[in-house]
């Protein structure tokens, strides 16, 4: 209705004023068209911006949460799985009155041990610990001597994340075999026999000097694994 009234009003004008009026109206329309356009932009931008802001917030929250989780979890897991290499000076050893079996039972370690405690003449057990933490075992060593035959058996145990410099000699154990389902590496020299294997979170190093027979170190491994 309003549009019709405006149209009639224009038509009623004389030609000169009619053109002038039309020009004014065009200008006015152009001005009025700007506002509807800007108003439309204003109305669309808040919606898009809001959606974008929301998405950003969600993403930021997720990332932050992930980072927080990593910051908490990573140090713990890395600490638990970190290997270490210890040298003389990192640790100190002391002769102890208990044997490996007693140590394992008292500390719920579930270590394997060589049960010759009633068969040999001398047993010497040494506990090597971190200089900074007496409760942090680096390795435990047990020597068993047969005074009649001169056979000397040495059993050394570390956890499977610890490497110790004095045990590098066992890197020469190149012969692989499977004993009682456990992978064992051995080597025989003219003077002694060596064996090493890993079981239940611990690494075992054996040395036999003046062995009673050629298969002695294998027999000892079998005997130790038999108590598992």
């Amino acid at each position: 209705m309003r549009e019709r009234d405006v149209h009639d009003l224009i038509e009623q004008q004389d030609p000169e004023h009619k053109q002038e009026l039309l020009d004014k109206i065009k200008v006015r329309i152009a001005e009025e068209n700007i506002f509807p356009q800007t108003q439309q932009n204003t109305e669309h931008k808040p919606v898009a911006a809001k959606k974008k802001n929301k998405l950003t917030l969600v993403i930021a929250s997720v990332v932050t949460a992930c980072l927080l989780c990593l910051a908490i979890v990573l140090p713990v897991t890395l600490t638990e799985t970190k290997n270490r290499y210890c040298v003389d000076g990192d640790y100190v050893g002391e002769i102890v009155s208990y044997n490996i079996k007693e140590y394992s039972e008292k500390n719920n370690k579930n270590m394997l041990y060589l049960d010759l405690y009633d068969s040999v003449d001398t047993i010497l057990t040494e506990f090597y610990y971190n200089l900074k933490d007496r409760n942090d075992m680096i390795f435990i060593s047990e020597e068993m001597e047969n005074g009649t035959t001169g056979e000397l058996i040495k059993v050394i145990i570390t956890d499977n994340k610890t490497r110790v410099d004095v045990l590098n000699k066992w890197n020469n154990c190149e012969k692989k075999s499977v004993i009682c389902g456990v992978s064992v590496q051995t080597v025989k020299t003219e003077i002694f026999m060596l064996a090493t294997f890993e079981y239940n979170g611990f690494r075992y190093y054996l040395q036999v000097d003046n062995a009673a027979n050629q298969n002695r170190v294998t027999e000892i491994v079998e005997q130790m694994l038999a108590v598992k």
Binding site: I95, S97, D121, T122, L124, E143, E145, G147, T148, T149, G150
Partner: peptide, 13 residues
């Protein structure tokens, strides 16, 4: 030492 073998003993406590 061990009389049977003549080898020296590990230390005692």
């Amino acid at each position: 030492y061990y009389e049977a073998s003549g080898l020296y003993r590990l230390q005692d406590t």
